[in-house]
């Protein structure tokens, strides 16, 4: 039982943060690598680094979201450096969420996968900077202010870039749906 005024233990604090941030970090990493297995490995790596350095984390200096997503971005940078020589085949969101072949997907699930694939293509047409903003906003669920801190832009600049990026995605999606 938590006594009033008593500081929660390190484990308890981290457990709470884990519950809140695991889905966000996983989604962010997964949309960057487009592969569930790699996303799980990289997410594990991000949280292991966070645990190792958690005692040194100073909440007065940076919000936990800024801190963990900075770790995530650095981890991804290292990952891409290692993977640079390998020719990666584009893997769609749909493929990433592939179910075992013997379990049939319901129609709505198929529809969702189809949309996810189209959105993935739309995001891929954006500039790397716009892609990063989209991922941090939608997958990591960071606010514009937090994104601004991580990427080194002003908050209003992030808002403008985000708006334009979504508009581009919409236009791309409309074209894709028209073609299909």
């Amino acid at each position: 039982m938590k006594v009033r005024g008593e500081e929660p233990s390190l484990s308890q604090t981290f457990a709470d943060l884990y519950e809140e941030y695991l889905p966000r970090v996983f989604r962010y990493v997964k949309c960057r690598v487009n592969d569930v297995a790699s996303a799980e490995d990289l997410t594990s790596s991000v949280f292991e680094k966070a645990v190792s350095n958690f005692a040194r984390y100073n909440r007065d200096k940076a919000a936990f979201s800024t801190w963990i997503f900075t770790i995530a971005r650095n981890t991804l940078t290292d990952y891409y450096r290692v993977e640079a020589g390998k020719k990666k085949q584009h893997v769609s969101l749909e493929e990433a969420e592939e179910r075992p072949a013997n379990i049939p997907s319901p129609p709505e699930e198929l529809e969702r996968k189809e949309l996810a694939e189209k959105l993935s293509q739309c995001v891929a047409q954006l500039s790397p900077e716009e892609q990063e903003i989209i991922h941090l906003r939608f997958e990591a669920e960071l606010t514009n202010r937090e994104i601004a801190k991580i990427m080194g832009f002003s908050e209003s600049n992030v808002g403008v870039k985000l708006y334009r990026a979504i508009r581009k995605m919409r236009d791309s999606l409309q074209r894709l749906e028209y073609v299909s």
Partner: peptide, 25 residues
């Protein structure tokens, strides 16, 4: 539509990573 298509970590991954991190912590 984009938010509806977001992937979520599997429960298995969530639990195994949590237990690993708890042990480390």
């Amino acid at each position: 539509r984009y938010t509806e298509c977001r992937a979520e970590p599997s429960a298995e991954f969530h639990d195994s990573l949590k237990s690993r991190l708890s042990l480390k912590l």
